[in-house]
Amino acid sequence: MLNINDLHVRVDDKDIINGLTLNIGAGEVHAIMGPNGSGKSTLSYTLAGRPGYEVTAGSVTYQDADLLDLMPEERVAKGMFLALQYPVEIPGVTTMMFLRTALNAQRGARGEEELNAADFLRLVRTKAKELDISEDMLKRPLNVGFSGGEKKRAEVLQMSLFEPKMAILDETDSGLDIDALKVVAQGVNRLRAADRSFLIITHYQRLLDHIVPDFVHILAGGRIIKSGGKELALELEAKGYDAFVKDAA
């Protein structure tokens, strides 16, 4: 599904990702854990195509295409989705209008028919209910005045509407209360499928109790220093990052 090979990324003249290799197969769930500032969000922005994230070496192949050649919106149309660590607030654009514009843009780019207003409304209502998101929130400007947890849930709502093939969740669990964490995890698990992959960035082993990963990677200093199965997260919880960073050095 996604093959990242010896990736180097520079932001504002600063090298942040330094030779990162990661292969994600169809249907797999990978978790990335790593200390603050290790480059997790930088990796996710690079994969989403954010301007200013300069790839200085390496390659990324996504579904047999050169991902780095594609515009952000083209990546999305091909099924890539990034739930942001810090979703932005956009006053003046209502959540509902945004969701419909986005969904129909993606469908249009794939040559699929656009959803009419009634079908769209039905779809959003169903998905919103699954995630405990109120109608009132959907009427408000995009993310404006949403609490931290509401913003994260809104990101998951988008994911469940767009049904991506490769979903990257950047600390979607941060800021969620215990109940919301379960709701969000259920949202992810509901989407798990043989042709859909996940890359889950998190600081907390707790999330991985709910979304059980196939692989866990430790990212430090812009590269993956250790990979393993789900038990690696437990080991990390017990020992802390330092032990692994020292081992790798």
């Binding site: 989403a48 195509g49 954010r50 301007p51 515009m71 952000p72 919106e73 999305v76 149309a77 990034l82 942001l84 979703p87 932005v88 956009i90 945004f98 514009t101 986005a102 969904l103 843009a105 993606q106 780019a109 988008q158 767009f162």
Partner: peptide
Amino acid sequence: FYLRARGI
């Protein structure tokens, strides 16, 4: 970027 990252 946020809007483009949603396919717009």
